[in-house]
Design a protein around this nucleic acid. Sequence first.
DNA 1: GAGTGGTCTAGACCACTAC
DNA 2: TAGTGGTCTAGACCACTCA
Lengths: 236, 236
Amino acid sequence: MENKYMLIYRDIAEKIRENQIKKNTRLPSEFELMEIYEVSRETVRKALNLLAQNGYIQKIRGKGSIVLEMNKIDFPVSGLVSFKELAKSMGKRHKTTVQYFNLENPDFNMMNNLNLKPSDEIWAVKRIREIDGEKVILDKDYINRNFIEHLTEEICSNSIYEYIEKDLGLTISFAKKEITVKEPSEEDYELLDLEGFHNIVVVKNFVHLDNASLFQYTESRHRPDMFRFIDFARRV
Amino acid sequence: MENKYMLIYRDIAEKIRENQIKKNTRLPSEFELMEIYEVSRETVRKALNLLAQNGYIQKIRGKGSIVLEMNKIDFPVSGLVSFKELAKSMGKRHKTTVQYFNLENPDFNMMNNLNLKPSDEIWAVKRIREIDGEKVILDKDYINRNFIEHLTEEICSNSIYEYIEKDLGLTISFAKKEITVKEPSEEDYELLDLEGFHNIVVVKNFVHLDNASLFQYTESRHRPDMFRFIDFARRV
DNA sequence: GAGTGGTCTAGACCACTAC
DNA sequence: TAGTGGTCTAGACCACTCA
């Protein structure tokens, strides 16, 4: 059984997406929603705050909650989307090739990135992502073995995230991302179909589990034309 | 007078930043914080949720709230930071030159971007941003005149955001951002010091006021080495 | 002045963690 | 079993918008 406020959030969000609730109109007031869903006001407000945080509505004191038009269904890179979900949502042919797979000790950089001791072990994986037959993304993952005991090449060629969440029952909670543009390395030129491009978009990802432990560092190197990031930023 | 939960949020956030509360330790429990700040539990929880959303802590049911180490003080591009604040935070010499300033009717693109009629008017501004003497960012702003009646070149060379918020008393509420990498246009080559670079990072920004009206579209074109974006994404 | 969202309280019960 | 955070309630007062 789900939370009440989650159910209300999902219900309203779906109605907005499906245009049952029109853009630029007002939602029922919080007091009306209390009666509609038979819950307390704070519960209504939790649902509305979620809607606002996710760009569905804008709450305006004294006026009401206005439904925004934001075509959010765009290209959901924001958040923690896996390559597999992403390619699927674009409706493109995609393929993942594991180019390197090893259990090893961290070098100085990784000790720093993942807060490790020299004696700790990490899974190091390099994967090449193809979209429509072109090699356009190079993913380098480094996973702390203290959290993921077993891993195989097989799993990596499918989806590491699916394995972690579905099979191991761990929950990924948050990630810190850093996006920069660099010159391609020798390796990028070698492994990707860079054609005429002389830059590469580097997305560094520090991924945490829901017990706050940092368990993975990923560096995702995109051909520039295969990169798009959408962000919805709300002032606090 | 500020909200109680905001005061608590700021108080704890500051203590974390200044290391008065150590990283990787636990905050006092919600019940203890109730006594410390003499507020109800929901008020404590609002403050803690803000801390979690902003990457200061991670709340874990049954255990407590853990202080994260995230060196957030990095480079706050995420959110809605103006160039002026940004350059200042980096401690670099910076300069803004207004290259184009005009009140005009929207073309088809802008009508689309800003939901306008052909008869509406927009302020069109092009500004060149220099950091340490190099022209590295080209900002193109298009502002709906229905919201900003008056604007001058003088204001644009300082900070449009400051004028809007401080002088006009309007509040910027949220923005939708889109980041892509493109080939530089003729204009980019002409106006910026692109040196050897053959790509440009394009940040499109749809900026809304707190009454939900879309009042500004900005396209910010960065030389690749002058671009960095940090994002903190929490799973919902 | 009526209606809206924003803040705050006091209290209840539940789910999870750790010992 | 004690302590933690998660959800939910009923009620209060405030600040703002709009007719």
